[in-house]
């Protein structure tokens, strides 16, 4: 229980610290950090969404970046057809990822374990190659957006600070939803299904439908992250859903600490700040990242969350 209280405290402190990024970077006259952290928040949402299915649901999706891509392309394509309503763009992104996630989930959830990892990877490769070949929407070159989504004069996303808090609001919302979701009946069922799906089925829960539900919710959250990434970058390209990107999101979750709600967000901060610093220092930064990653795993996958409050809890093995 103490662990739980500590975790909540870290979450509140962490979110408060993130909320202070724009004023601090203004004070430092370093507006660059607002942009860097906007990106970090977006990847935090992606990591958070992946955490829902891998930590709580035990579904090891190795193609999660595909939802980033679908969400981003939904915005890009809407923009290309002159639809500039931000709300509409986000809704299209959510609907598109919901549809794709439902389809992928329906097929993949028939399998489990390694097969599940591989089939999610296969689907993401499929859509990745599709995005490269569709020349109407830029192909490998990607597509440049005309402008950010419009939310009326109240939320001018062209202002970097407004965009930051806009993304921040989404992160806070998803964090709130997820913290309630995992403690709800729905959350209990998918957690139960991770350790023993047969028992859950015997108890009369339609396990498949619950898992599919979690899979789709996770996909939509990640799709919104993708849409926000498109709004921020005003650019979409297939590189957003390369298979290594799926690996990176997974690394963020693990770096931060699985199943700890705020952990994945800490992981995204750590990973992207590390990347920002290391790429400036060495062209072999993948070498160091690889070693760090192997070390984290060999030391028992204790994410940053466990370091922060000094408590060792064994991550449960699914």
């Amino acid at each position: 229980m103490a662990a739980n209280r500590n975790r909540r405290l870290i979450m509140w402190l962490g979110m408060a610290a993130l909320a202070l990024v724009p004023p601090v970077s203004l004070a430092l006259s370093q507006p660059y950090y607002v942009d860097l952290f906007t990106r970090i928040l977006i990847f935090s949402i992606a990591a958070l969404s992946l955490d829902l299915i891998i930590s709580y649901g035990g579904m090891l999706s190795f193609g999660h970046a595909v939802y980033l891509g679908v969400g981003a392309y939904a915005v890009g394509i809407a923009d290309a057809y002159g639809i500039d309503s931000g709300l509409f763009q986000l809704l299209v992104a959510a609907a598109a990822t919901a549809a794709i996630a439902t389809f992928i989930g329906l097929v993949s959830l028939r399998t489990s374990g390694v097969h599940f990892i591989m089939i999610t990877l296969a689907f993401s490769q499929m859509i990745y190659f599709l995005s490269i070949s569709v020349n109407k929407f830029g192909g490998e070159d990607g597509m440049t957006l005309n402008q950010r989504g419009q939310f009326g004069s109240l939320i001018p996303l062209d202002n970097a600070n407004v965009l930051y808090y806009f993304v921040f609001a989404f992160l806070a919302l998803f964090l709130w939803i997820q913290s309630h979701l995992v403690r709800s009946r729905f959350g209990m069922v998918i957690r139960g299904a991770r350790t023993n799906p047969r028992r859950m089925a015997a108890l009369g829960f339609p396990v498949f439908r619950y898992q599919l539900g979690a899979f789709v919710i996770s996909g939509v959250m990640c799709g919104v992250a993708g849409a926000l990434l498109a709004e921020q970058a005003l650019f979409v390209s297939p590189a957003i859903m390369q298979w290594s990107r799926s690996g990176e999101i997974m690394v963020m979750v693990i770096m931060g600490g699985m199943g700890t709600l705020f952990g994945p967000i800490l992981g995204a901060v750590a990973y992207l700040v590390l990347e920002d610093v290391l790429t400036g220092l060495t062209q072999y930064w993948g070498f160091f990242l690889g070693i760090i990653l192997v070390a984290i795993i060999l030391m028992g996958r204790q994410g940053i969350m466990s370091l922060v409050y000094g408590l060792r809890w064994k991550s449960s093995h699914g």
Partner: peptide, 15 residues
């Protein structure tokens, strides 16, 4: 990666 290039450009412009 285009998004990494964009990140670098942002850093160069603003930082």
């Amino acid at each position: 990666k285009p998004d990494m290039g964009r990140q670098q450009a942002e850093k160069m412009l603003k930082k």
